[in-house]
């Protein structure tokens, strides 16, 4: 039995766990620079997480086991998702356990439980966050699947490794549907990871919170897990976009040198995607909740146009 894929798998999960705080630190740094502030440095998220892990848990009186279980579940599904997306190599053992639909569903189950945790305490904020989150998700998910289906139809597979291999092999070059699907994917990533203009990760203002409202009552290690999972999710979406639409540098040879090269390319792509993210966030304002219909509607439109373009223009 060839052990190499398993090594890559473990390495990749370690990378996702290890790099995601730095990635978030990078995004925050860029944001500070763009707004003329001094940044807290690349490693501030690590310090935040460490601090939270060290703290004791303060739990609301009527929190049930759902509330306490949710951070672990969110963390677990996000780690699994990190093992599924082929970031270093297309030959990952976990990649076969789940295709892209399962990936979307994994994020959905994390969201389902986070929303439940928001309702568990019985505060107005928690319910508000859950309600908004589920509304946004129900509009974003069809668009997400549509964007991905465009790729799946073109590559005749829903397996991520297979999609990446097909796109990487150059059978698909400059194609309109890829562009459409990519644009749709960008919009959806903003919604799914809770960035401006859909949600503001840096706010605690009651009218604008979505994700923060649900996790308001968390503290200590629970909060650390949720924050960490959130960081991983952001990085995973960026990596997913990078790997699906720009799969350059990914390791298809299954060699150590290939893996190192893939890692360097990944860093480069993540850095670039951070820049793009910050540009979008600085350029846009947070939208009203009901303007989101138009925002996510456009994402759906783009994804659908991508699918139509696949049939019409090819």
């Amino acid at each position: 039995m060839n052990l190499y894929p398993f090594m890559t798998e473990i390495l990749q999960i370690m990378i996702v766990l290890g790099i995601s705080p730095a990635f978030v630190g990078w995004v925050r740094m860029l944001k500070c620079w763009s707004q003329g502030r001094t940044s807290a440095g690349l490693f501030q998220p690590y310090r935040d997480i460490r601090k939270l892990f060290a703290k004791n848990v303060v739990l609301a009186e009527n929190a049930s086991w759902v509330f306490r279980f949710t951070p672990y579940l969110v963390f677990g599904t996000t780690v699994l998702a990190g093992g599924i997306i082929p970031m270093l190599s297309v030959d990952l053992p976990l990649s076969a356990t789940a295709d892209v639909i399962v990936l979307v569903a994994l994020f959905a189950i994390a969201r389902f439980f986070t929303a439940l945790a928001g309702m568990d305490i019985g505060t107005a904020f928690g319910g508000m966050g859950s309600s908004r989150e589920m509304t946004i998700a129900s509009l974003a998910e069809p668009a997400m699947l549509m964007a991905i289906f465009t790729l799946s139809l073109a590559c005749r597979s829903t397996s991520l490794s297979q999609i990446v291999t097909v796109i990487f092999s150059g059978q698909i070059q400059l194609r309109p549907y890829l562009a459409f699907a990519f644009l749709a994917f960008v919009l959806i990533s903003l919604a799914e990871t809770g960035r401006i203009p859909v949600d503001n990760p840096a706010t605690h203002l009651e009218l604008t919170m979505v994700h923060e409202a649900m996790i308001l009552e968390y503290s200590g290690r629970h909060l650390a897990l949720i924050e960490w999972a959130g960081m991983m999710k952001l990085m995973l979406f960026m990596a997913l976009g990078a790997v699906l639409f720009f799969p350059w540098g990914i390791d298809v040879t299954a060699t150590a040198a290939g893996a190192v090269r893939a890692f360097l390319f990944l860093l480069l792509k993540l850095g670039a995607s951070g820049v793009v993210l910050v540009l979008i966030e600085t350029g846009l304002a947070k939208m009203r909740l009901f303007r989101l219909t138009e925002f996510l509607g456009s994402a759906f439109l783009l994804a659908t146009l991508g699918m139509l373009a696949y049939y019409i223009l090819d």
């Binding site: 194609r175 309109p176 549907y177 562009a179 373009a309 223009l313």
Partner: peptide
């Protein structure tokens, strides 16, 4: 290919 790409942009 460029032509069909431009067509897509017109549609967009």
């Amino acid at each position: 290919q460029i032509s069909s790409f431009l067509a897509a942009l017109v549609l967009l």
